[in-house]
Each structure stands twice: as C-alpha cells, then as structure tokens.
C-alpha cells in the first residue's frame, strides 16, 4: 500500500509540473490555433535563464520564476509580431505556423547549444535533494514545491481567464474569434497577449524544470511529444483538460516506470496520444466547435 501511495505522490508532483509545461501550449493553440512546436524549446530557454542566474549568483530557481516568465513573455511579444502577425489572414495559416514554430525550435536549440553547449545541466538548490518523510513514504521537496507552484500558477491563470475582462476576451477569442471581434475585442492584441502569457508560462515552467529534470538544448524533442499527448488528451485549448491529462498520464507513467520498467514510462505518453487520436480526437474536455 505504501509503495502505491509513493508512486501516486511522485506521479502527481511531476504531473503538476507537466501541467504547467503544457498549459501555455494549450492556451496558445486555443486562442490562435498555433501548434507551437517551439514551446518545449522555450521551456528549456527558461530553464537556462534560471540555471545561469543560479550559477552566477545563487538565486533560488523559484525566486527566478517571475523573472524567467517576464523575459519569455517579452520574447513572446517580439516573436508574435515578427513571425505570426503577418500570417493571420493567410489561407495556409495553420500549415505556416507549424513550419514557423518548427524552425523556431531549431533556432532556439542552436542558440542554446552555442551559448551553453550540449552538456546536461540541472540547478541544485538544497531542497532539490531533500525529502519529507511520512512513515514509509517520502516526498521529494523539489518535486513537491515544483508541483505546488505549478498548480498555484494554473489556478491563478484559471481565475484570470474566468473573471477578468481580459480573461473574458481571451476565452471569447478562443471560442469564436470572429464573434469576439464583432463585439469589440481587439483580437490582434488578445493574440499577442495570449502568446506572451503562453511563453510566460513556458518561462515559469522552465524555472521549475531546471531543478526537477536535467536538461540540454535538444531535450525539447523528447518533451514535444509528451506535451502534445497531454494537450491532445485534455482537449486542445482546454487548460482544465491539460491539467487533468498531465496528472493522469504522469501517475500512469509513474506506475508503468515502477512496475514494468523506467524505459517504458515515456511510452505511456506516446501510446496515450496514439489512442486518443484514434478513439476521441477532441480529447477529454474538447468539444466540437459547431453550435447545438
């Protein structure tokens, strides 16, 4: 029983971080229909910002989170204006954004490789190697803190989307871009804002990832499939779906990793992606866009 509880706790803690990693991807897809293949590489960029600050002056990764988020959000504004704004009226918008974000991912990987080499990195605050013990069960402090911070950020994001005026505009743009525009929403501004928030979430996730996983510039290839499976399972564009899917898959992956073998753990995400596309392409919380 203690062993099952142990696996469950580890799975949930990691799931919280993966939920944050996927929520930015989901938001950007929901509002702009951009499948941002560069999202994981931008998470790694956030991790490197945090790593650099930690190495240079010992700044705690969690304290660096708002800085990393702000830097990535600012980069998001620039990237959107440079890369996507001019494509919004293109009939091949979706295809173009896939190609553009693929190219962006390659560029980010190249820049990070040039700056930091391809060596595996990890920030190592004291709590990253400590744990709480409750009987026979241990809870790694690093994963626990990362999971709790992730879920706090996602809760704040959800409240913002649910109750603020800008949140209404983002949700409206997600559900019906043309209708939002007709009701006075400046959808271009909302797209820039949502992209900035999406990349801000990538930056925030990067800070947490920096002490939970080891990372190197090409790591994003592994994460892109994992995050896609989370976002597709949850329902493209649904933040709640992303959280549920991340927690669910992480827990399943933890059990698979423990009982079958660590190398099969990642397969859980890929298999889920494959099955969900076959059985329920709109995901758990996705809905068909047609009105009733």
């Amino acid at each position: 029983m203690a062993a099952i509880l142990q696996i469950l706790i580890l799975g949930l803690a990691l799931g919280g971080v993966i939920a944050l990693m996927g929520s930015g991807l989901s938001l950007v897809f929901g509002v702009m229909r951009i499948v941002n293949l560069a999202h994981p590489s931008l998470i790694i960029a956030g991790a490197y910002i945090t790593y650099w600050a930690f190495k240079a002056s010992g700044v705690d990764p969690i304290l660096m989170l708002p800085v990393s988020a702000a830097i990535m959000a600012a980069i998001g504004v620039l990237l959107y204006r440079l890369m996507f704004e001019r494509e919004t009226n293109s009939v091949k918008y979706s295809e173009m954004t896939v190609l553009l974000t693929f190219a962006l991912a390659m560029m980010v990987e190249g820049v990070l490789g040039g700056l930091f080499t391809n060596t595996q990195r990890v920030t190592s605050p004291d709590y990253a190697t400590e744990a709480f013990f409750i009987g026979d069960v241990f809870i790694p402090k690093g994963q626990l803190y990362a999971g709790l911070v992730s879920l706090t950020i996602i809760t704040a994001l959800t409240l913002f989307l649910k109750y603020s005026r800008l949140g209404y505009a983002i949700r409206a743009t997600t559900q019906n871009r043309e209708a939002a525009e007709l009701l006075g929403v400046n959808v271009n501004f909302i797209s820039i804002l949502a992209f900035a928030i999406g990349l801000g979430l990538a930056g925030a996730a990067g800070s947490l990832v920096s002490f939970v996983f080891s990372f190197f510039p090409a790591k994003h290839w592994e994460w892109v499939a994992m995050l896609m499976s989370v976002v597709v399972l949850g329902g493209m564009g649904s933040i709640l779906g992303t959280v549920v899917a991340a927690l669910l898959l992480s827990v399943v992956a933890a059990f698979v990793g423990t009982w079958i073998g660590a190398t099969w753990s990642t397969m859980t995400f890929f298999l889920a992606l494959f099955l969900i596309l076959l059985i329920r392409p709109q995901g758990l919380f996705g809905e068909k866009p047609e009105m009733a």
Binding site: Y168, R171, A172, Q175, N176, E178, A179, A180, E181, L182, L183, G184, V185, N186, E287, P289, M291, A292
Partner: peptide, 28 residues
C-alpha cells in the same frame, strides 16, 4: 476602420452563425 472601432460608433452585426460563445453561459 476595424470591426471593434465600428462597433464603438454604434453599429452591431449579428452574422448568420449568430456568433455566440458556445462554452460561455447566457449571462457571460
């Protein structure tokens, strides 16, 4: 002028598809 600017002038448009937000409540 953009649609949001024209709306502020006082012209509302309801397209054929009704332009509602299906996952928002009536009040929203």
């Amino acid at each position: 002028m953009r649609p949001d600017q024209i709306l502020r002038e006082g012209i509302c448009f309801v397209p054929q598809e009704r332009a509602l937000f299906p996952k928002m409540t009536v009040r929203e």
